[in-house]
Write a protein that binds this DNA or RNA. Structure first.
Lengths: 232, 232
DNA sequence: CCTAAGCACTGTTTTAAAACACAAAAGTAG
DNA sequence: CTACTTTTGTGTTTTAAAACAGTGCTTAGG
């Protein structure tokens, strides 16, 4: 674990925020990052840790969660390649307020804090891209706050399933979620107890809105699911 | 209403994010903003509206809220001078996802979108300040999501009272909140029904943690209130 | 001054979801 | 292969908070 990994083209891919950089700047970036790999279940950082740089997820999937008062976790973000994790604390110059755990075998690379600042100072397009990214994330968080507090269990779970589909997409069949979460994670994403996630999932299955086969969730009626989510 | 107002020194005050600008840049800023005043209760923008520029609150107090599924509002932010409202949507290049209403007679000035972009492009310190501001706001939103979903009514209300004290401060006596909200607003801030806000407020008063006199709330035992908030 | 409207407050009922308590299945390690 | 742990699944009880219902107070407007 924590083996060295190599993710050269990850940072400069067309999907990456860094594609606005000049060749020279991209060079600087490539020379200043450390790659590491994590197995499924491993902790990437913990609440309270100090961020050392910008973490880029090159491979795998990561959940970011906060421990609540009753010991119950709330998943506040899910990351897929190519994406960043832990950037909030870095930019706010604070310690992490949440923890990140790999939910699949993953590779990350860390861009040094000072190098990043240099790049931001040298390239306004990068600044604007980061500002936009943060603003969108804030919008997501605000939306989520209202959904999680006001929707009922069915609505919250339906919303989570749609969110997972939007984020990770479908398998080749075009309807099976390309992410395999435990019932507990699904519950922690949707602000409910594990029992209730299991129960509600079964209900959806009985109603033929989804099909469940272990952790494999196939969405049969997206429209129906969206309706359940909207009604709350 | 919507009278023209004058808030020249508001943008360039030492508390403002724009204090990193050069004299020349500050000049550009001052030449390109429109000031308006709103009476208590007036709408500054509505969910779905398109942002035209960066809104700076120069005088007064503003609540920013989202309408939930059951018609119940959730207050997601409270703004005081000198602060910005509606910046999230502007930076994300989206329409507003929340509404802003003045809860006191207020003055705002709007900085044109293109002027703002010019300033961001010319001054990296401004970029960094905006990035930091957004990241802190995102942290606040994440914390809030967990509190509002996991804490019980007493904990949520206690947290809101502490938040109001932190945001708006105290009157001369050093313990009376310098903000006067209706019970409904207090409920919408704390994710509960108005009845429950009233009830819980009375309980706190009976327990001598606070003193209530209409909308005037005096915090008698801050430590106690913090305990209630932490325990959930 | 009187009336209306909105806000503050209280008691009662209902309900959604948590908590609890098991049982069965599926992975995992020895 | 067996024992152990974790995850999944289900039924029951309890509880926190919403919904409902109605009264009094205060403010605003004619």
């Amino acid at each position: 674990m924590h083996k060295k990994a190599d993710c050269t083209n990850c940072l400069t891919s067309s999907e990456s925020i860094f594609n606005v950089l000049t060749a020279k700047e991209q060079d600087l970036l490539k020379k200043n990052n450390i790659c590491t790999s994590y197995s499924k279940g491993e902790i990437i950082y913990k609440e309270g840790d100090k961020p050392s740089g910008l973490i880029c997820l090159c491979k795998g999937k990561v959940k970011v969660f906060k421990e609540g008062v009753g010991g119950r976790d709330q998943i506040i973000r899910m990351a897929k390649p190519i994406g960043f994790i832990g950037f909030r604390a870095l930019f706010a110059e604070e310690n992490y307020i949440a923890s990140a755990v790999a939910i699949e075998d993953s590779s990350i690379c860390i861009i040094d804090k000072t190098v990043l600042e240099k790049l931001i100072r040298s390239n306004p397009d990068l600044s604007l891209a980061i500002i936009k990214e943060l603003a969108q994330e804030l919008g997501f968080s605000n939306e989520r706050t209202v959904s999680l507090t006001q929707k009922h269990i069915r609505g919250r779970l339906a919303e989570s399933l749609i969110f997972l589909a939007d984020t990770f997409g479908y398998e080749e069949d075009g309807k099976t979620l390309k992410v395999y979460l435990s019932r507990e994670d699904l519950a922690n994403l949707s602000n409910m107890t594990t029992s209730n996630a299991i129960r509600t999932l079964s209900t959806f299955s009985l109603e033929n809105v989804i099909k469940i086969d272990g952790r494999r969730i196939t969405i049969l009626k997206v429209r129906e699911l969206e309706k359940i989510s909207e009604l709350g």
